[in-house]
C-alpha cells in the first residue's frame, strides 16, 4: 500500500532524537554567538512595526506599542537579529524540503474535513497564536524552547501553558486531525 510513486520518492523524516540533539546544538550556538536563543514571532512583529512605520508614520509615533518598540530597539526594525534568523529558517526549510523531495503545493488536512475548513482553522489558529505570542513575550521557539535552554522560569511556565491548553482542548477538535 505504500508503494505508490510519491511514497517511494519521499525521504523519511529524521529520527526525532537525532533532530532534537541537532536542534539543541542550534540553540546552543545561538546563545554562544549572540547571547540569546532562537525565535520566530519576533520577526513577524518587526515586520509589522516596519510596515506601520512606513505606511502610517503618524500613527507609529503615537501608539504606545510602536513607540515602545522604537524606544527599546531603535533603527530599522527589519535590521534585527530575528529577522535575519527567520530568513535563514525559510532557506533552511526550503533546502531540507528539496533534499527530502517534499516540495509540493498542498493543503494538508484530515480526510474527514474539507480544505476550506482546514484553511479557516489555520487562519484562526494563526491569529490566536500571533496574539498569544505577543502577550506571552514569545512563542514556542523564543519563549518555551529558548527559555527552557537557559532555565528561565518563564520558559517552563510558557511550555506548560501552551501544551497543557492544547492537550485540554484536543478532544473538541479531534475531527480536524484524526
Amino acid at each position: 500500500m505504500e508503494t505508490n510513486f510519491q511514497q517511494v520518492r519521499k525521504t523519511r523524516y529524521m529520527n526525532p532524537y537525532v533532530a532534537g540533539v541537532l536542534l539543541g546544538l542550534v540553540v546552543l550556538a545561538a546563545n554562544f554567538i549572540a547571547g540569546r536563543g532562537v525565535g520566530a514571532s519576533g520577526a513577524v512583529k518587526s515586520t509589522i512595526v516596519a510596515a506601520v512605520e512606513t505606511i502610517a508614520p503618524q500613527h507609529a509615533a503615537n501608539a504606545t506599542f510602536y513607540k515602545d518598540y522604537g524606544e527599546s530597539h531603535g533603527g530599522n526594525p527589519l535590521n534585527s537579529w530575528l529577522v535575519y534568523q527567520m530568513l535563514g529558517v525559510l532557506v533552511g526549510a526550503f533546502l531540507s524540503g528539496i533534499i527530502a523531495h517534499r516540495m509540493k503545493w498542498k493543503v494538508e488536512h484530515s480526510p474527514k474535513i474539507t480544505s476550506k475548513r482546514r484553511l479557516i482553522f489555520a487562519l484562526m489558529g494563526g491569529i490566536l497564536f500571533g496574539f498569544g505570542s505577543q502577550l506571552g513575550r514569545g512563542c514556542t521557539s523564543g519563549s518555551a524552547l529558548s527559555g527552557m535552554a537557559v532555565l528561565s522560569l518563564q520558559g517552563f511556565i510558557s511550555m506548560a501553558a501552551i501544551f497543557g491548553t492544547a492537550f485540554t482542548f484536543a478532544y473538541f477538535f479531534r475531527k480536524n486531525w484524526i
Partner: peptide, 17 residues
C-alpha cells in the same frame, strides 16, 4: 499568553516557527 497560544496550536496545527 500560553493559554491563547495553546488554543491557536490545536486550531491551527502550527506554531510560528
Amino acid at each position: 499568553g500560553g493559554i491563547v497560544m495553546g488554543l491557536g496550536f490545536i486550531l491551527g496545527g502550527f506554531c510560528p516557527g
